[in-house]
């Protein structure tokens, strides 16, 4: 695959971004991050209040990527086998077993959309651990592969009733956790209220051209991006410093108001997490037409790839979002790149 093809892929990626931005307004940052995750082959978790457009955003991307698409709703009674198969009585009056959401598209599954993931039980989270990490599943006495699959999930943190906190091991499988907030622009807010095209979500999502990206070529282009975008020795050193600062912030002089920094972090970013951060930074550099990663590329993806991996002392867990954002901002403001 040549540089020209990389340019073609970039044009398609920017077209996808553009189309989604037409449908979901005021979320350009989140759209760029999801595009980044798609080309870095990372799973995405959206987090935000109810009705802010998380599901619409993911559906719009799903349509643009093309390939097999499945969606499940997280419920308290959802069990792992509900994702793998379902049984029913056929017209012939006999029991039948058919593939569940994960298996129905075979290897062509490109997007597995898990809505309200925190409503599902830990058993389901466990199944997802393997599917997300290895893109394989053992069922019906054989191994099933999903080489092109990305998991898009969303959750809202407002509701705590009948929900299960996603364990840190499962959170770590997601490349990014992207916060979705109500757009701050007054005009955008007004159009969301009065523009009727935003009221019919199905019609809105259908405006995204289907299959803008060739889903089964994404793995190849992703590998090419990772191998062709360079990281200089200075940037490597800078990334290492950032990582170490997330693990022992007190050693780097980081401070968060009202927090005992020495007791705050139980575990910083994992090696897998920082590697995913670097993958995303490379894709961001590529999307911006560069051949090497800059510190700004890291900053663009730093919060969304690292914050959800931090394991804090339980006494600070209630203020997790606020503390993580402040801590990581402090990290960027404190560590020198060159």
């Amino acid at each position: 695959m040549s540089d020209r093809q990389l340019d073609d892929w970039r044009a398609q990626a920017l077209q996808l971004e553009n189309e989604v931005n037409q449908v979901v307004v005021g979320q350009a940052g989140a759209v760029r991050l999801i595009t980044t995750a798609i080309f870095a082959r990372g799973h995405v978790l959206l987090e935000g209040d109810v009705g802010v457009g998380k599901t619409t955003l993911l559906r719009a991307f799903t349509r643009g990527i093309g390939g097999g698409y499945q969606r499940v709703e997280g419920t308290i009674d959802l069990m792992p086998n509900d994702l793998v198969y379902h049984t029913y009585l056929g017209d012939d009056g006999r029991p039948h077993v058919s593939p569940g959401p994960l298996l129905s598209h075979g290897t062509n599954l490109s997007v597995f959309f898990f809505n309200e993931i925190n409503r599902a039980r830990p058993q389901v989270h466990s199944l997802l651990l393997r599917v997300m990490a290895e893109r394989t599943l053992s069922a019906f006495n054989r191994e099933h592969h999903f080489p092109h699959m990305l998991v898009f999930a969303d959750r809202n943190q407002v509701e705590k009733e009948e929900t299960f906190e996603i364990p840190s091991a499962a959170r770590d499988r997601f490349m990014m956790e992207i916060p979705i907030v109500v757009p701050a622009n007054i005009d955008t807010m007004e159009s969301l209220i009065f523009d009727t095209r935003f009221h019919d979500v199905d019609a809105l999502v259908d405006k995204v051209a289907p299959g803008i990206l060739q889903f089964d070529g994404l793995n190849e282009v992703a590998a090419l991006i990772q191998s062709s975008i360079q990281a200089s020795p200075t940037l490597r050193r800078y990334t290492l410093d950032l990582w170490l600062a997330t693990r022992s912030p007190a050693d780097y002089g980081l401070k968060v108001e009202g927090v005992d920094i020495k007791r705050l972090v139980i575990a910083g970013a994992s090696p897998r997490g920082i590697a995913m951060m670097m993958r995303a930074a490379r894709v961001n550099a590529w999307l911006n037409g560069r051949e090497a990663v800059l510190p700004e590329d890291i900053h663009t993806v730093f919060h969304e790839t690292i914050a959800h991996r931090m394991v804090f002392n339980p006494i600070y867990e209630m203020r997790r979002t606020e503390i993580a954002r402040e801590l990581l901002s402090q990290t960027i403001r404190t560590i020198s790149a060159a």
């Binding site: 200089s232 200075t234 940037l235 560069r290 090497a292 510190p295 060159a338």
Partner: peptide, 8 residues
């Protein structure tokens, strides 16, 4: 950037 990160 040219010296430390991206010679292009």
């Amino acid at each position: 950037r040219a010296v430390f990160f991206d010679s292009a």
